[in-house]
Amino acid sequence: MSGAAARPASERDPGLQPERTRLAWRRTTLSSTAAAILAMKTTLHGGVSAPGIVVCALCCALWLAFLLIAHHRIRTLSATSSPTALTPRHATAGALLTVGLAVCAAALVF
């Protein structure tokens, strides 16, 4: 566990930690895609209304924002063999986007 900083930059982490973290971001993006698709299904179910379309568009925007965050983080993770930690801003943004999706969902369900 010692000497992570001393490793040469080209050496691969035998535990594949950056790769696993990258795949975890991919899985999370997939989950948010599923949630966004369910939001679309709820909107289109039984009569389309203007407020419903607006909330659905908001859901798609939130999903897109999450995709961008994940993409940015995945690029950071693949850039070096010992990447820097996630910044609190990114983590908070990811969590708040999830909260936003839940709020949109409540509006759609009501």
Binding site: T21, W25, R27, S31, A91, A95, T98, L101
Partner: peptide, 21 residues
Amino acid sequence: DYRFSLANERTFLAWLRTALA
């Protein structure tokens, strides 16, 4: 060690997936 931070990040993502589920 960056590996500990990455493990913490994966735990965070797993909770986020739970929230999305």
